[in-house]
């Protein structure tokens, strides 16, 4: 009993293919990976929205922005 079905290496390597854990779950892993990727974009958009709001609030008069432009 092992997570990839192999309990020893008493095999002919010519007859062995995939050896990753939990074979048969590849499609589920793919779906979970897709979800991870999409959730990442959602979280990133939210975080950037907050960040941009903070950036906007950081300089109400425009003085700091003018200094930043001068610094190049």
């Amino acid at each position: 009993m092992s997570t990839n079905g192999m309990s020893d290496w008493a095999v002919d390597l010519a007859n062995v293919a995939n050896i990753y854990p939990f074979p048969g779950t590849e499609f589920l892993l793919f779906l979970a990976g897709l979800a991870f990727w999409i959730i990442w974009h959602v979280l990133q958009f939210r975080a950037e929205k907050t960040e941009l709001r903070h950036e906007m609030d950081a300089d109400e008069t425009g003085d700091k922005a003018r200094k930043a432009i001068s610094r190049y």
Binding site: M1, S2, T3, N4, S7, D8, P21
Partner: peptide, 15 residues
């Protein structure tokens, strides 16, 4: 993740 898989190609090693 690798529970039960062989740690070695040699006989007698713990999994």
């Amino acid at each position: 993740m690798l529970w039960g898989q062989p740690s070695s190609p040699y006989e007698g090693y713990a999994a």
